[in-house]
Amino acid sequence: MKMKRLGSILLAGAMMAATLAGCGGGGSGDNTTADGKSTVTLWATGSDNVRAIFETLVEDFNTNSEYADQYQVELQFMLSGTGAQTLADSVAAAIKAGQTDTDYDIVDWSGDDLSKIVSQVGEDAFVKLDRSKIPNAASVEAESSVAADYVQPYRGTTVILAYDSEKVPNPPTTWEELEQWMKDNPGRFAYNTPGTGGAGDSFARTAVYNFLPEEAMTSDDPKWEEQWDEGFNYLKDLHQYMYSSGGSIVYPNKNQGTLDLLNQGEIDMCANWADMVLSQRAQGAIKDTIQIAQLDPALTGSLQTLAIPTIGSNEEGAYAFMNYMLSPEAQQIMVTEMAAIPLIDTSEMDMTGYEDLAGLDVSNFRIMSIGDLATDFNARWDSEIGSIG
């Protein structure tokens, strides 16, 4: 217990130091390494697997890329869920305080965090991108639905249908087909309880928001909450066809809960993250027969993007790293290490074991960011769906 407490104190101290470093007016000082390279500070947040992939990418950039003799990237990573202040909060605070020449040189944003930071400080807090400085982006078709001129997408992630191909040779491709499949195969589908994992969140919210205008998916206006009835009635209708155990309908906890049921043969299909399914399949943690399919309209996902804050101190170095992230080498690392969905032409990449990724249409990704409405949504789901039994 004492060691745990000490670890928590050290982690909190490290995060505070990192935040103060980013917000300090002097940024990273000289910005030059001992061997004359220009320092570029990359800020990112997420789970531990995201930290690990960024460490690998930074090492490759610093030692093997075409920019290795000119720039050195240093990673500042904020582990999600370990503190009250998020990366978006930290960057927004520095911008609102009028800081300049900080070490916020380039920042990695998920869809939700990007929406949050833009709502706080506006897109003009970032450099409007000069696409001529990102030649590797030429084959990228995916475009952010938020601040498109100011951010560069570099990888995708999305919730899909995971299914056992031995039992489901022709998976549904539309919501109508999925509904009919559930009716024909009662008890063989599952999605996790919303609030315990993003896949369940995505399935429930997409099912409801399919009945609303597209603009509602990226809005926290309470007016949309008044229009949830039709979607919740749809979820109630589907309830009877969900996975059951001991005579009662069961919604598993966490994304892993549904994937475990699929791997054990308790169900034949579930909603899950594409990268989670494919990375576990590549590791041999789940059966080779488990494959993925995309619905139309698609379940929600995210485009990870990079942006260059105007308060940074190394714009050219930031462009260099941004361009590197869209190189075949960097995209290959992300595919192999985390089953990320590549955004460039994959003809120059080895997709062995990840062929499913090539079939995902990133231009069809749907991002959901509903702010505080998410709390009300989960509460209503618990009350009206999870309590049915």
Rank of each mutant, 00 (worst) to 15 (best):
S8I: 14
A12N: 12
L20M: 14
L20W: 08
A21H: 10
C23I: 14
G29M: 06
N31P: 00
D35E: 12
S47K: 10
N49K: 09
V50Y: 07
E55T: 11
E59M: 07
E59W: 03
N64F: 05
F77E: 09
G81I: 09
A84E: 11
S90Q: 12
K96G: 01
K96T: 12
A97P: 02
Q99D: 05
D101R: 12
I106C: 08
D108K: 13
D108E: 14
S115R: 11
G122H: 03
K128N: 13
A148V: 10
V151S: 02
S165G: 08
V168Y: 01
E176T: 15
L178W: 04
L178M: 12
Q180P: 03
M182K: 11
P186G: 07
S202D: 07
N210S: 04
N210T: 06
N210Y: 01
P213Y: 06
E214W: 01
W228R: 08
E230H: 02
Y243H: 13
G247T: 07
S248M: 11
V250T: 13
L262T: 04
E266I: 00
D268N: 13
M269F: 01
N272D: 14
M276K: 04
L278M: 10
A285S: 14
D296E: 14
P309S: 09
S313H: 07
S313W: 01
E316C: 08
Y324E: 06
L326Y: 05
S327G: 08
A330Y: 04
A330D: 09
I333T: 14
M338Y: 02
T346K: 01
M351G: 05
T352C: 00
N364K: 15
M368A: 05
D372I: 12
D376S: 15
F377M: 06
S387T: 10
